[in-house]
Amino acid sequence: MTVETPERAGINVPDREGLYASMFRMRRFEERAYELFLQNHIHGTMHLGLGQEAVAAGVAAALRPDDYSLGTYRGHNHIIARGAPLDRVMAELFGRATGLCKGKGGSMHLTSVDHGAYGSYAIVGAHLPIACGIAWSSKVRGTDQVTVCFFGDGATNIGAFHEALNLAVVWRLPVVFVCENNLYMEFTPIGSVTAVVHPAGDRAPAYSLPSVVVDGNDVEAVYGATAPAVAAARAGEGPALLEMLTYRYSGHSRTDPGAYRPAGELDQWKERDPIAAFRRRLTETRADMDRLERMEADVEREVAEAVESSLNAPQPDPDDLLTDVFASNETRWRT
């Protein structure tokens, strides 16, 4: 198992400042969302991807706008990376009528078909076979669209993961599986319940599925590993799996202080913060820092506007409870 670096993959990241801004956008969105959660503007629970931004950003940068992606309940990053407007994402977290799912789903169900983002899934593993079906459809329609499926390390122990990997190879599907290995399922270290060291990467060979383990906190490495996998899938050469090593800063969900993690682990990972590290690297390599700072300011404005508009957005009409059960809205079951 090798850890891929962008140099070895021979990839030039096209827009480094843009890649940075993409991560920064996720970070600021979630930091604000968490504050708003603590102020009870966001209900139920919420799963943050703070610390994991490089994965979504690097993968999405390797996609075309017409490619498909599927994410998880820890999915703010996944949907934001595809370009979903922050105001509609935030409004969904608030449960407002203007949200991406009209308030019916909330944080765990973010979907933006306009951006190729075919849903977030909170039944762990359920979306891997669905990703296969989406990829199959591209194949049948004769398009060269690629499907990317994000999932966690915990998901590799459910049957659907194994069924999907096998199917993807047997059908030679244009799908790229992206495992965000953040070392934990919810509160249990993945290593304590998994037969192999790399929960996704070590399983892939059993299905003849090409796989790479990647430094998921290095956005250029992520891009560098994803771009060739996507290119191969697009060229009809079949699926691939990428295991991204990363770490979530927050607990699993709102009530979890993360006390089960060994002392010092979080701090070690924070030293390798994907955003701070990349910013340093950009400075050192004389990127266009003026442009980068303008982008940061734009993000701050966009996030502030998203919050403002969500606070003022209308609540869903209680009657809308009964709509959308069927695709044909006229077909009402019984009310």
């Binding site: 209900h43 449960g95 308030g103 019916k104 409870l321 009964l322």
Partner: peptide, 16 residues
């Protein structure tokens, strides 16, 4: 409850 999935937004969940 009516024949719908359980929605997230509080006004919808209350209606449910």
């Amino acid at each position: 409850a009516p024949d719908t999935p359980v929605p997230y937004a509080p006004p919808l969940e209350d209606a449910f």
